[in-house]
Design a protein around this nucleic acid. Structure first.
Lengths: 259, 259
DNA sequence: GGCCGCCGTCCCACTCAGCGGTACGCATGG
DNA sequence: CCATGCGTACCGCTGAGTGGGACGGCGGCC
């Protein structure tokens, strides 16, 4: 029974990856049959794979169902791109939260999407579209645009070629305007999200650079449109991002830092 | 060439797990040959496995070397045991840090060791032996003993049978004293670490319970022996742990909560 | 009560994916 | 200039992995 719909190579590892990827933010537990259905694997294959994954600690048995295991969390915390950046950024993020009394985000670019590495929320925070370890399209977020603005052209092209999907009425979905906005961001060193990723949510973001002068990620201050004056937050975000970049050993040039 | 030294089943997944486990806190990048050496795999096998792991995003190419990939971080953040507990605990942990002006730890038990799920540090914090996603033997930490005290007997037995390894001159390494201390912890609802995991580091910890009444993890306040009065911190830690447990839906009985 | 559908589990013969010995080109450095 | 160690690539052999199928148990519906 060729279920087709397969993308990469049908190696054992690809199948195992499919099994783990079947889980999600709202899909914490799965039975064997459900797993087989979602991955397109034969039930007996899903059964055996799940068993092996439990053996090595990547899955945990929950009654007769199965869920992601602690070993994956441990491995995830060792990922260098995330670890080094988060560790260096945390103190500055806490300062930024205190100074602005708003939610603070730290994200990196992964392909054409941003992955949130750390989020510091304020007490009364309304729900946000972001989640630590969660993904959002780069062109529809403040941090994403800040990173894209300082990324090599082929990265921006990849994002555009993949389609500028609309998330709200304000999402930038045309290549021309996006390219123009990225140029503006480069001039100011600041990018804005004006309800482009989720209605009612705005943010001011700035890029973070590494020792080799390349963008490592983005830092942002996020809040509700009614309460947060993004332009007023811009200097604080930019300052925090610059200080962080300097501590990471970035070779910061004069005013507008061009990588 | 049977390199022996193999533990589980020699399945593809076990080999892939060995590859990923070859990385560590200080081992962020590895070459193919080094990888083959550490895993006991043939160089050509390590090469192919690494290639496949890169394809599915679990490893990233770094020049000719290889390191853990962002996809593992994303997966790790979805692990339910960690996610639910951390999310619920964060506000209380921040309060606890502010109230005690000390480092706050949240950990769960994984086998016979504790895994740190979240750590809130204070500004001037001296280096600690703990790391988010890191492991320490349960019997040698405050959170570990707090969890063990409310765990089923077979869990404690497993810890003892595995050997009560010494970490400092103060580590409890005899089964008898450990069992007695666990009983004391059950009476007081508080456990202490008096330089048992690392010299100069002390802590006060309390267990956190879930909706089914079982221990989910431990919460602690940690600092330098010269500066932190653990007994004075005990009520704050215990209160935070009880409040958190209650919010998690734990069926808390009278004074000493016995699961 | 009895049927039916879905579940997790187990078995087993076939086959091709994975394995590793081997070889090559290339830096490095003594 | 050779020795050493690296990453990469090829390729024939084989047993690990696959999936169709069967089985017993559990609930819900008729």
């Amino acid at each position: 029974m060729r279920t087709a719909e397969w993308d990469g190579g049908p190696s054992v590892l690809a199948r195992a990856a499919a099994v783990l990827d079947a889980f999600g933010a709202d899909t914490t537990e799965l039975g064997i049959s459900e797993l087989a259905r979602r991955t397109g694997l034969a039930k007996s294959t899903a059964h055996r794979l799940a068993g092996e994954l439990v053996r090595i600690g990547w899955l945990e048995q929950a009654g007769t169902k199965v869920r992601l295991g602690m070993h994956l969390f441990e491995l995830g915390q060792l990922v260098p791109r995330q670890r080094a950046l988060r560790e260096a950024a945390l103190p500055f993020m806490e300062d930024l939260r205190e100074a602005t009394n708003s939610n603070v985000h730290l994200a990196v670019l992964e392909g054409i999407e941003v992955v949130y590495v750390e989020i510091l929320r304020v007490r009364d925070s309304q729900p946000l579209p972001s989640r630590v370890g969660g993904r959002l399209p780069a062109h529809a977020t403040g941090v994403g645009k800040a990173i894209l603005a300082y990324s090599p052209p082929e990265v921006v092209k990849a994002r555009i070629d993949a389609g500028l999907t609309r998330r709200t009425a304000y999402t930038v979905i045309m290549p021309g305007p996006l390219m123009r906005e990225l140029a503006t961001i480069r001039e100011a060193g600041i990018s804005y999200d004006r309800q482009e990723s989720a209605m009612g949510v705005v943010c001011a973001a700035a890029p973070v650079f590494g020792a080799d002068g390349r963008v490592l990620g983005g830092l942002s201050v996020t809040g509700r449109a009614e309460r947060l004056d993004t332009e007023r937050m811009a200097p604080a975000v930019r300052t925090a991002a610059l200080t962080l970049s300097r501590q990471l050993g970035a070779p910061l040039r004069r005013a507008s830092t061009r990588a």
